[in-house]
Design a protein around this nucleic acid. Structure first.
Lengths: 232, 232
DNA sequence: GCGGCCGCTTGACCGTGGTCAAGGGCGGAT
DNA sequence: ATCCGCCCTTGACCACGGTCAAGCGGCCGC
C-alpha cells in the first residue's frame, strides 16, 4: 500500500511514448536517473541560459515554456500538461536551456531526468531510436506551430484551437472546457486578451458559440471549421 | 582523376555534422543508402503528404521548405544552402512529408538518403546519438524561428536577419550579400515584398545602410542591432 | 539593338489587431 | 458576509503592415 516516490516516477515515465517499449531492466536504469520535484504556481522551473542538467516530464499540473525578448514581450512555445515531456533537446545537445519554463498551477509535479540518461543512451540503440522518433514528432509539432502563429489570422488560430480541444456532446453541439485561463490562452495564441474577448463575444452574438466562464458550447462546428482554415 | 558520382555523395555526406565522427566502414554503409538527384529552379522536390522515402542533403543550389494553407498563402519554414540537410524527421517518424520543398536555383543537387538508413540506425548507437544531437539542434533552431516570426516586428526581423549574414569589412562598415532574391527574402521573413522595399528605403534615407542590388553596406551596426532586438 | 518579362519600387488605402483606460464580476481570504 | 484583487470585458484610438495599382529598370532572348 505504501506508495513510494519511486513508484510515482515509474508510473509517470512508463506512460511516455519513449519508454513504453523498454524491458524492465533497462527501464529501471532510466528510473534511477530521475527524481521528483514540486513547484507552485508562477514558480520558475528554469531560465533561458541556465545549465541544462535535466529534462522533465509533467506528473501533474501544467507548464508554460516561453521565450522573452529584451523589451518584455514573450512568446509561448509550448504548453504542457500531465504526461508530456520537455527540454530533451537542451540536455541532448547544447547543454543550456534556450527558453524559460514556469509552473502554471499549484502544485505542479515534475519528474526530472538528469544527465546520467545520456550515458544510457550511448549504450542502448533501442532507447536512442525511441528518442529519435520522439524528437522527430516534436519537430513536426513545432512546424505546425509556426504555421499556426504566422499564417493564420487571430480568428483562424482561435477556431483551430477550439476545434482541437477534447469535446463532449453531439457533432452539432460540442461542449469544451478551456484548460487555461483566458489570458493564458491569449498568450498561447499570440493575441491580446482583449482580442480574445472580442472574438468570443462576436461569435456568441452570431450564434456560433455560447460562453460561460471556461465552458464553451460550440453550436456551429461547420462554420468554425471554415474560419479555422480559411480566414475570418 | 575520374570523379564518380559516389565520390560526390561521399564528400557531401562527410561534411555533415551527423557523420563526421563515423569510422570508414560505417560511413560507407551510409553512403550505400544514398543517391544523387538534380533539380531545376522551381522544380518540386516533394509535396506535403507525399510518402517520405528519403531525407536530403544539399550539395549545391538552395531549397525552400514551406507550408501552404488552403487559401493560397505560404510560410517558409526553412531555407537551406549547400551542406545542410532536411526532412529527417519525416523519414524517422511518421513516414510522410509534413511540408513542401522546392529548388530555388538551377541546378540544385541533392543527396537523397533512403529508408535503408533506418536499419543502420537500429544497429548503431553512435549513429543514433549523432542523429539525436542533430535533431535537437534543429529543434532549437525552430524555437528561434518561432520567436523571429511571432515576437519581433518586421523591422526587427529584417535587422536581425541582416546582422546574422556572413559579412566582410570593418566592424563599423560591413558589407553583406543577400543570398536570396528580395522577394524570396520577404517570404522568408513573412513580410510583403513591398514592406521589405520600404524598410530598406527608409534605412537608406536615414544613413543606416546603402543598398545596391543584392549588396548591402551596413553603415551603423549599432542602431541596426538595437532595432533587431528591441523593436523599430 | 529592341522588345518583353519579371522583379523591384513607390504611392494610396484600409483592415486587423494591439494599446490605453475604465468599469464589472467572480472568487478567495479574513 | 464583506472586502480586495485579479481576471475579464468593453470602448476608443491608432499604427503596422498587407493589398491593389501603376511605373520603373535590368536582364535575357531574339
Amino acid at each position: 500500500m505504501a506508495r513510494t516516490m519511486t513508484d510515482s516516477i515509474r508510473e509517470t515515465l512508463r506512460a511516455l511514448p519513449h519508454f513504453q517499449a523498454l524491458d524492465t531492466e533497462l527501464f529501471e536504469r532510466v528510473v534511477a536517473c530521475a527524481e521528483l520535484r514540486s513547484f507552485e504556481r508562477s514558480e520558475t522551473i528554469f531560465l533561458h541560459g541556465d545549465r541544462a542538467r535535466a529534462f522533465f516530464v509533467v506528473r501533474c499540473g501544467s507548464v508554460r515554456v516561453y521565450r522573452a525578448t529584451p523589451d518584455g514581450r514573450e512568446q509561448v512555445v509550448h504548453h504542457l500538461r500531465a504526461g508530456q515531456s520537455f527540454a530533451e533537446p537542451a540536455v541532448l545537445s547544447i547543454g543550456r536551456y534556450p527558453v524559460n519554463a514556469v509552473a502554471l498551477e499549484s502544485p505542479t509535479e515534475l519528474v526530472a531526468v538528469d544527465a546520467r540518461f545520456l550515458e544510457l543512451l550511448k549504450g542502448e540503440p533501442r532507447l536512442s531510436i525511441a528518442i529519435v522518433s520522439s524528437l522527430s514528432m516534436r519537430l513536426l509539432g513545432l512546424v505546425e506551430r509556426i504555421e499556426e502563429l504566422s499564417i493564420a489570422s487571430a480568428p483562424a488560430r482561435l477556431a483551430h484551437y477550439l476545434m482541437k480541444l477534447p469535446a463532449q456532446g453531439t457533432h452539432e453541439h460540442l461542449v469544451v472546457q478551456l484548460p487555461l485561463a483566458k489570458k493564458d490562452l491569449a498568450a498561447h495564441l499570440a493575441i491580446a486578451p482583449e482580442t480574445l474577448s472580442r472574438l468570443l463575444r462576436r461569435w456568441q452574438d452570431r450564434g456560433l458559440i455560447r460562453s460561460k466562464g471556461r465552458t464553451l458550447d460550440l453550436l456551429d462546428t461547420r462554420i468554425l471549421l471554415a474560419i479555422a482554415d480559411r480566414d475570418e
